[in-house]
Design a protein around this nucleic acid. Structure first.
Length: 308
DNA sequence: TATCCAAGGTAAGTT
DNA sequence: AACTTACCTTGGATA
């Protein structure tokens, strides 16, 4: 086992591990105390988070188990890790530790709601989730609460994911496309996926058969990329935007979920334009364009956690 | 205890 | 292209 630590002070801007992992953008981490996302009351403050990551070109050539926790604050704390390999490049990639968060804030419009959200969760960063697990996670997110989406992904991992060890302890990788494609709708319904079960199976089949690769969207212009991902079953504009923002580095994407739609109605009613594409464009401009997705994620987490 | 309702929407069918 | 409606499941609110 390898161990190490990253000083937050060495990053460009603050970092808050819990806010980043539990803000509803990634469902691929387990908290070591077994707590589900959004269960902040039970959070000890420096709990370990654990995940298994399949090879990512340019980041890691092997499947890696990584555990991570943060001690101290969002500006002066330390990020400790244990892993089957050197986890610094991987954590930098997954948690966007290479973003200049102070620069993102500087580029964000001076709007009262955004200011409150940024102040409330200083150090929240976007993620770069592995694409296939991210796609499945957000197909499962339809009409679902954050804690339950997390529970579904955990059950998928524990039921159909490969076991990988770290220091003698077992961890579950996310199921491969082939592993999910081989399941029946009924088997997936048994994991409480409900009507999403056939969507997950058929999308996994498309990826496993090589009919379409979600990663290819990364090479397209933003709105073309959004259209491209909707070819997968169970993926509409909103889920597509989530995958673009949380996995494929389209930081301008603003997923129009129920929270953001309420926000638009309450704070920026002039941005409501009828269609998804037009409303999306309007709120994206209001949130500053290039990093509008950062603003969306702060607002989502802030409102959902009870701010206002 | 029973019933209702909303939860980070999408697909399929209808105008 | 815009507008309905059905869809699994569950935790929390209401009666």
């Amino acid at each position: 086992m390898e161990r190490g630590a990253i000083d937050v002070a060495d990053l460009n801007g603050p970092f808050d591990l819990q806010a980043t992992v539990e803000s509803g953008q990634s469902y691929l981490w387990n908290r070591a105390d077994g707590g589900t996302y959004g269960d902040a009351r039970a959070y000890g403050g420096d709990e370990w988070y654990e995940t298994v990551v399949d090879p990512i070109p340019g980041v890691t050539d092997e499947r890696v188990v990584v555990r991570v926790r943060q001690r101290g604050g969002a500006r002066d704390g330390t990020v400790e890790w244990e892993s089957t390999a050197d986890a610094v490049p991987l954590l930098t990639h997954l948690l966007r530790l290479d973003d200049d968060l102070d620069a993102v804030l500087d580029a964000t419009p001076d709007l009262p709601l955004l200011n409150r959200a940024y102040d409330a969760y200083e150090g929240l960063r976007l993620t770069r989730d592995p694409t296939f697990p991210c796609l499945i996670s957000f197909i499962c997110s339809a009409q679902m609460r954050v804690a339950r989406i997390h529970r579904m992904q955990r059950r998928l991992r524990e039921t159909y994911g490969d076991v990988v060890e770290l220091d003698g302890e077992p961890y579950h990788a996310f199921p491969t496309p082939a592993a999910l494609a081989a399941r029946t709708e009924g088997e997936l319904r048994d994991l409480s996926l409900g009507y999403r079960a056939p969507y997950v199976q058929r999308t996994a089949e498309m990826v496993a058969d090589g009919e379409a690769r979600p990663e290819e969207a990364a090479d397209l212009e933003y709105e073309d990329a959004r259209d491209s991902l909707t070819r997968f079953v169970g993926v509409g504009d909103k889920v597509s935007d989530c995958v673009l923002l949380f996995s494929l580095a389209f930081l301008e994407a603003v997923p129009l979920d129920t929270w953001i739609r309420t926000t638009i109605a309450d704070y920026y009613p002039d941005c409501e334009r009828g269609s998804y594409a037009d409303t999306s464009r309007a709120i994206r401009d209001r949130f500053g364009g290039e990093y509008a997705g950062y603003a969306q994620t702060y607002v989502f987490h802030y409102l959902r956690s009870g701010g206002e």
